[in-house]
Amino acid sequence: MMLENYVFYLFALVTIVSAFIVVFSKNIVHSAVALFFTLFSVSGFYVLLRADFIALTQILVYIGGILVLIIFGIMLTNKVTGAELKTRNLHFIPSVVVTGIITGMIIFLLLSTDWNPVKDPFSPNSTIKQIGFKLLGDYLLPFEIASVILLVALIGSAMYARKK
């Protein structure tokens, strides 16, 4: 149990520091690399929460898919050699105030509510089989709709991004 605590605090530190770099860095490529560390340590949280399949999906889809897509987007929309990679924050002080108030309210509400968690948390050996039965059982219709949405997104983004 002690080791799990240390691992949690390590992942929490990495997540929050790299998310700060994503948000405050002047260079977009630095933001993208910091986003890699954020996503990776979030998948570490999923492992700590005994969600093995979600952790693997997080690495495959977010790091292998979305992050590569974002880096492609950066390379396609910036003059890489010039100063165009620099960007800045707009209305810095008002944004910090608004975000701080909203975040403080959310964390206050989360902490002041008694969620009444269960005494012995769920710790299975593997969740993949159960997730498979759920997806093809209770959640069959949302699963099929999600596949249609993926197809529509594929066709739509290819149509939008191609040359005229």
């Binding site: 929050i16 998310a19 994503v22 954020t38 979030v42 209305h91 975040t103 959310i106 964390i107």
Partner: peptide, 14 residues
């Protein structure tokens, strides 16, 4: 909650 706040900040100010 902290992660949400940072994402919101990026959404507002970037």
């Amino acid at each position: 909650g902290i992660l949400f706040g940072l994402g919101l900040f990026a959404l507002i100010s970037r």
